Simulated scan of single mutants.
Amino acid sequence: MIVKVVYYSMYGHIHAMAQAVAQGVSQVSDARVDMRRVPETLSDDILEKMGALQARDKMKDVQAATVDELDEASAIIFGTPTRFGNMCGQMRQFLDATGKLWASGALIGKVGSVFTSTATQHGGQESTILSFHTTLLHQGMIIVGLPYSFQGQMRIDEVTGGSPYGASTIAGGDGQRMPSENELEAARFQGRHVAEIAAKLG
Rank of each mutant, 00 (worst) to 15 (best):
A31N: 01
G99A: 05
Y8K: 14
A31Y: 07
H122F: 01
V5E: 01
V33K: 03
D68V: 04
D61C: 11
H193Y: 05
G145C: 06
A199E: 13
H13R: 02
A55E: 02
D61T: 13
L101W: 02
K200H: 12
Q90M: 10
I129H: 07
Q121P: 07
V114Y: 15
E40I: 08
I156Q: 10
E185F: 11
D57W: 13
C88V: 11
Q54P: 14
T160E: 12
R188T: 03
T134N: 11
V159I: 04
M1F: 00
V114H: 09
L136E: 05
K49E: 02
T118G: 04
Q190A: 03
L70A: 11
K100T: 15
Q153N: 01
Y165M: 13
I108Q: 11
S117M: 07
P39D: 13
G162D: 02
K200C: 11
S74K: 15
M87G: 06
E185G: 13
M35C: 12
I46G: 09
G51Q: 02
H193W: 12
S29R: 06
H193C: 08
A186F: 05
T66Q: 02
D71W: 09
H15P: 01
S163L: 02
G172K: 10
A195P: 13
Q151W: 08
A20R: 01
Y8S: 13
L130T: 12
T120Y: 02
Q139C: 04
M91A: 14
V38W: 11
S168L: 09
E185I: 12
E40N: 14
L70P: 07
K110M: 14
G123V: 02
V38C: 07
H138W: 06
G51N: 09
A103E: 09
G173C: 12
